[in-house]
Design a protein around this nucleic acid. Sequence first.
DNA 1: TCTGGGGTCCTAGGACCC
DNA 2: TCTGGGGTCCTAGGACCC
Length: 402
Amino acid sequence: VFVSGEATILHADLDAFFASVEQRDDPRLRGRPVIVGGGVVMAASYEARAHGVRSAMGGARARRLCPDAVIVEPHFSAYVEASRAVFDIFRNAAPVVEAMSIDEAFLDVSGLERISGRPAEIAARLRREVREQVGLPLSVGVARTKHLAKVASGAAKPDGLLVVPPDGEEAFLHPLPVEALWGVGPKTTEKLNARGIRTVGDLARRSEGTLVSLLGRASGRHAHALAHNRDPRRVERTRGRRSFGSQCALGRSTTSFESLDVTLIALVDRVTRRMRAKGRAGRTVVLRLRYGDYTRITRSRTLPFPTAASETVLATARGLLAAARPDIERRGITLVGVAVSGIDGAGVQLELPLDGPDTAALDLVLDQVRERFGPGAVTRAGLLRRGPRLAAWLFPGEDHDV
DNA sequence: TCTGGGGTCCTAGGACCC
DNA sequence: TCTGGGGTCCTAGGACCC
């Protein structure tokens, strides 16, 4: 594996994204503390952050901290549109762009020097173009590894650019608190602090074995590697998502089991609609619940075949919900969510009733597949051979060892 | 701190297979 | 009947990220 010795990875991150879009679209909000989302803070402008407001904070607390804040409802379509425009600029600037979320991405600009200039110049241009063409502040970190670039963009905020030169990496990394590491959250920070490990430098002095026994195998190794500035991850093209989900918080008032079904139908419809729009199907239906005391559980069921059909997902989710009914009625319910995971690539969706095999419907689907992919694309024998689970479900009791 | 909505990855036990 | 060693898949929960 070729590992560049140059700082050619950019991490580009829009500042206070939702809040910045709101300030861009309403001049009255500029220069004022802005909070997006009333119940829970979804984004806070830097003016609001100066008062201690943070995202994911309860709305009541945020208003106490910053009584002058303007609270606006989110405008998701505006955010999606702004994000598209920004990513167009990213893709214009670098051959490999890896989207991390709606508002941040890694860019690999190695080998572009003669065409586009040095990484720091590309980063500066990126910031200028996003500001001029989309009207939003962008911070960029430039470094030799993804992790350093990510931490650097955070340190550059707001509206800044920070390059970590290869010979300044340890000096940059070691004084940072452990929670500055990407992947070290509140729980891990607490465990580490309890052991007197407060900075990345402290972390680097502990052995991998010590960290593994403290944090578990993957987290321990990860923390150890990052503290020693080892991060071989390359910037890769954004992968397809691995699950589709939707959830709905219900508030504190008691909810009847019957009205829960209405919510469930809407959630399943949203999820499967999005899956069909992307041409994806998945095998595992996950029901997410949060009881009245805010404890969470998940219940899941894996189907023998991938689907994006509303009826199939709904029937499965209903089954999971029915099993939880006694608990829901005893403890109350404050959130319902549905997700479909185990996404099987594009693939073919078989939309069949759950209550038993329907070979006529199957033949119809197979005809459509042949029409699209050619007459030899699928045969029943091939189906049996390649999808034993599906075959067992479609033709129970038959010999599937074809 | 009285808690949205969308995701990712890891761990661990049990069933099952060869 | 007790027991190896290697593996996959499913389910549930937890930590983390934006």
